[in-house]
């Protein structure tokens, strides 16, 4: 497990940008590395606390597995779902080629 307070590097930011699907220029990588390192430095404050026996809290309510009656209801009509699509060929969304040459896969 990586410890806190390891200084964030430009390579870390490139990796995170890739995971986040954000295309950054080299200048932006440098810019965000500085800023995020500064913010993470502050967040390191959390390592002051002993949290070994603390139950994590992902959500403010205690509800679990809330189920509704299993009754079919109308879904969104295809034309409404496609109405905001930048490119479509009803009933499909259009994207560049996914597999094979030129797909980037």
């Amino acid at each position: 497990m990586a410890a806190m307070s390891e200084k964030l590097t430009e390579n870390d930011v490139r990796k995170v940008a890739k995971l986040s699907r954000l295309k950054l220029t080299d200048d932006q990588v440098a810019f965000y590395t500085d800023q995020l390192a500064h913010v993470l430095g502050y967040i390191d404050k959390l390592s002051e606390l002993d949290v070994d026996n603390v139950e994590p809290m992902a959500h403010p309510t205690d509800m679990t597995n809330k189920l509704r009656p299993d009754e079919p209801t109308a879904g969104m009509p295809v034309d409404a779902a496609l109405a905001n699509a930048p490119a479509s060929d009803p009933p499909f969304f259009k994207v560049p080629k996914v597999l094979g040459e030129g797909s980037g896969a």
Binding site: A3, M4, L40, V54, P56
Partner: peptide
């Protein structure tokens, strides 16, 4: 990017899980 970093492999325990525990406190 900050959120992706906190959830990414190798950093999840140090950041996200720890934050959830402090949230409980």
């Amino acid at each position: 990017m900050l959120g992706t970093y906190a959830l990414s492999s190798g950093y999840y325990d140090a950041y996200y899980l720890r934050a959830l525990k402090v949230r409980r406190l």
